[in-house]
Computed example of a mutant assay.
Amino acid sequence: MQGLKVLVTRPEPENTHTCQTLSNLGAVPVPLPMLQIKPLETEQDKRRLHSQLFNLDAYQYVIFVSKNAARIGAELIDECWPMLPVGIHWLGIGKGTTDTLNNLHIPAISSPGHDTETMLAWLKPVKMREQKVLIVRGQGGRPDLASGLESRGAKVDVLELYQRATPTYDAQTFFFLEEPDVIWVTSGEGLSNLTQQVQQHSPNLMNTTLFVPSERVAEHARSKGWARVICAQGADDQSLIAATMQHLG
């Protein structure tokens, strides 16, 4: 990947970590976050979150949907539980989320795949009947996981830890942007934000090879007019690196 210019659209702080990984490989990262993560930090928010987490031991499954959910959730759990409650199945969607949890001393495992659909296929109905499940995510996340689990007979609660906001860039940002060889997008929402900005400020980028984490996001990208879309089968750095190197041959 020596000299390859990669536009990285992850939110911070993950964007900085990914850019450092690319630099270590000799690539040239071009950071342009397409999501902002804003933890819910008012006193009222903190009381609500702590109140939910004090009941953590009532759940059989706790599922984290993203690295941000893992990072912020682990910090809040640590505030409420000096020792983790026992008897919980800790799950992360995607390798990056699960690795983040493990690095923060939460013994999580993941489904064999990297998205909600794979997680639902993995959690068979017989496993989930009458099970209490807590989904840890941001505000306004996709409802598919909760509704899919409820259809399997689970009792689902949601813990919303942060807001997602869309960064605003102007034409000048894109005028001075180093033209990338490839673009990495790690979520459907990030793709939507990127598409809107690119169509407005730099339509030629729609012809740049775009790496996305799942077939669902790939289909979305093609429907929006992206010319070259490759599914990396994961949103973590290693999946994106492997797919990029395979593409380069």
Rank of each mutant, 00 (worst) to 15 (best):
M245P: 00
H114K: 08
P167E: 05
A221R: 00
H247M: 12
L40T: 07
D78T: 12
L101E: 02
A154L: 10
M1F: 08
R129E: 12
T97L: 03
N15A: 15
L104Q: 10
T21E: 15
L53K: 01
Q60S: 15
R48L: 14
L91V: 14
Q199E: 11
D78R: 10
M119A: 12
E219T: 10
P203D: 05
L76I: 13
L7Y: 01
S192D: 12
P180K: 00
P107H: 12
N15M: 12
P213C: 05
C231Q: 08
M1G: 07
V65K: 00
P143F: 06
K124Q: 12
G73S: 00
I135A: 05
P13H: 09
V6G: 02
I77P: 02
L76C: 09
L22E: 08
E178K: 09
V126F: 15
T42E: 04
E117F: 09
N68F: 04
S192F: 08
K155E: 12
I63H: 00
H105P: 06
Q52D: 08
T9W: 01
N55Y: 10
D78Q: 14
T100W: 05
T186V: 15
K95E: 14
A235T: 02
S66A: 10
K46Q: 09
V133K: 03
L32E: 10
S187C: 02
T173A: 13
D99G: 04
S239I: 00
Q233A: 14
G249C: 11
L240R: 02
Y169L: 05
P85F: 07
A165W: 13
W90L: 07
S202Q: 13
S51Q: 13
T21A: 15
M206R: 05
G96N: 08
Q2Y: 10
P125S: 12
P11F: 04
H201N: 11
L159T: 04
A58N: 12
A121K: 13
D115A: 07
